[in-house]
Structures are given as structure tokens and as C-alpha cells.
Nucleic acid binder design. Structure first.
Length: 257
DNA sequence: TCCCATGTTGCTAA
DNA sequence: GTTAGCAACATGGG
């Protein structure tokens, strides 16, 4: 599923295509998405992102929030084709935007034009002191802490493993046990990895595709995720897989302490 | 057939 | 209060 870099990729591709354009009509294919208010005739004023959530600001003051969850995808189509698992279609003058979602976990809902979220977004430079402060009483594994959307917005299972490898930190360490220097490493590495993943238009491990159905390229730069039994590119030791809070976690026992 | 899956929420129990 | 564990959501791929 899309994490921050994948959602950011969609936002960047979507802006030139729909910002300033009017939604002509809407077709709800999957009733599980629930009731959507009338949107026809509204113009999309902006496309924003916070963490893994995409938000459209509309000309009537409403905000529409997308949570793609595990398998939600957005595709821009100008021809007549319809992708598999289409759940929702926005008709614009120049084409259609389709929400495709095999597992049907994605949500679309109106939200209030909220003030800035108090949670730092992973693409912004993280403040190591603030990270340390919010982890001060958290004994859960630092990997789970990084994936807690209330701590940092946007980091999911793939990038949590990658960031901790880059920072040289054992993912099972209690969050409260990291030193200030280690939080500085986390802050620096996190911004660098997420930015590089955005540049690469995300990670296509299995079936992530961007707005134009193109694959991302960051899977070629992964250091640990999905590499159980392979060798660490830094020290040649074997990459291990462990389960933390029910999620696959990959790390190098030599590079990460 | 079984196991796995890039997410989130809510419950239970320690 | 915190955390782990589990189920649920629902489907497809290996």
C-alpha cells in the first residue's frame, strides 16, 4: 500500500491534471464507500498531502480526504478503458480519475478544512528533540514508534525498516532507549530516504503503480526490506526477518544495534 | 491448501 | 496509561 512517497507521487502527478479543473460528475461503483455529497460543478483548488492522506480543497469550501490504505490506487485515464476493481470515478473535462482498490479498504470522505496538523510530516525535516521527547515514555519497539502516525505522519512498514537500517538502529529497541545522537540519525536518514523514494516515484514491490500506471523504482534501492537471507550491502552479513507487532521487519544484526 | 501482503481500527487482556 | 495480540475489513498472488 501507498506510504508517504507513493501518496506524494500521486499528488505531484495529479496537480497539473486536476487543479483548477471542474468535477463534472461522480460515479460511485462500490457502495461500501458510503454516501458522498454532491461534488459536480466544484473545482479542485488544491491537492495536498499529510502523511498517507491526500486532501482536495474544493471551490465550495469542502475538503475531500482520501485514505488509500492497503491496495487503493488512483489512475488517470483519457481513453475509454476501465481498470480492474474500479470503485469510484471522477469525470473531468479532460479525462477520468479512477479509484481502484481490490481489497476495498480505501476510504473517501469529507473533512473539515483543518488547521495544520500537530503531527510532523515525514517529508519535512524532523526535529530530533521533538522525536526524543515524544518517545520519552514509550517502551514499544522503535520501529512501531516510527509507524505510529501520531508520532510521525507517513512512515509505513517498508520505509520504517529502511530508515532504521540507514540509521544503524535495531528495530526492536524500545523507543525510549535511543540516545539524542541516534534520534538525530533517524531524523536525517528519514528525510533523505523518503525524499529519494519520492524521486523514484515510490516502491513497486508487488503492485504499486503511479497515476499513469507506471511502476516506481525505489525497490532497486531497498537495503533490507524483503531481503531476508540476502547479504547486507554494507557489511555482507545476512539480513534477518523478525515479526514486530505482527508486521514483517527486516534488519542487519551487524549494522543495527 | 496455506501463507503472505506497503494500512487502520477496535477489542481484550496482561 | 501502555502495550501486545488478535480479529476485522476483503482480495489476490505465490
Amino acid at each position: 500500500m501507498p506510504e508517504l512517497p507513493e501518496v506524494e507521487t500521486l499528488c505531484r502527478q495529479l496537480r497539473p491534471v486536476i487543479v483548477g479543473r471542474e468535477i463534472q460528475s461522480l460515479r460511485v461503483i462500490d457502495r461500501k464507500l458510503g454516501h458522498l455529497p454532491p461534488l459536480a460543478g466544484r473545482e479542485v483548488r488544491s491537492v495536498e498531502r499529510h502523511g498517507k492522506r491526500m486532501v482536495w480543497m474544493l471551490s465550495d469550501g469542502q475538503c475531500l480526504a482520501f485514505q488509500l490504505r492497503m491496495t487503493g490506487r488512483l489512475f488517470w485515464l483519457e481513453g475509454g478503458e476501465t481498470p480492474p476493481h474500479a470503485r469510484l470515478v471522477f469525470f473531468f473535462p479532460s479525462g477520468r480519475l479512477v479509484l481502484s482498490d481490490p481489497r476495498r479498504f480505501a476510504t473517501v470522505a469529507l473533512c473539515s478544512p483543518s488547521a495544520a496538523s500537530p503531527v510532523a510530516d515525514g517529508l519535512e525535516p524532523l526535529d530530533p528533540k521533538a522525536l526524543a521527547a515524544s518517545a520519552r515514555r514509550r517502551r514499544l519497539p522503535v520501529k512501531s514508534f516510527l509507524m505510529d502516525q501520531r508520532a510521525v505522519a507517513g512512515i509505513g512498514n517498508i520505509y520504517a525498516s529502511e530508515i532504521l537500517h540507514g540509521a544503524g538502529i535495531d528495530p526492536t529497541r524500545p523507543a525510549c532507549s535511543l540516545t539524542p545522537a541516534q534520534w538525530r540519525r533517524v531524523a536525517t536518514v528519514s528525510a533523505r530516504i523518503l525524499a529519494k523514494a519520492v524521486e523514484a516515484r515510490g516502491t513497486s514491490i508487488s503492485d504499486w503503480r503511479d497515476l499513469f500506471a507506471g511502476p516506481g523504482e525505489y525497490q532497486h534501492q531497498l537495503r533490507v526490506y524483503g531481503r531476508k537471507g540476502e547479504r547486507c550491502r554494507a557489511c555482507r552479513c545476512e539480513i534477518l526477518r523478525v515479526v514486530i507487532a505482527g508486521r514483517s521487519t527486516f534488519y542487519c544484526p551487524t549494522c543495527q544495534k
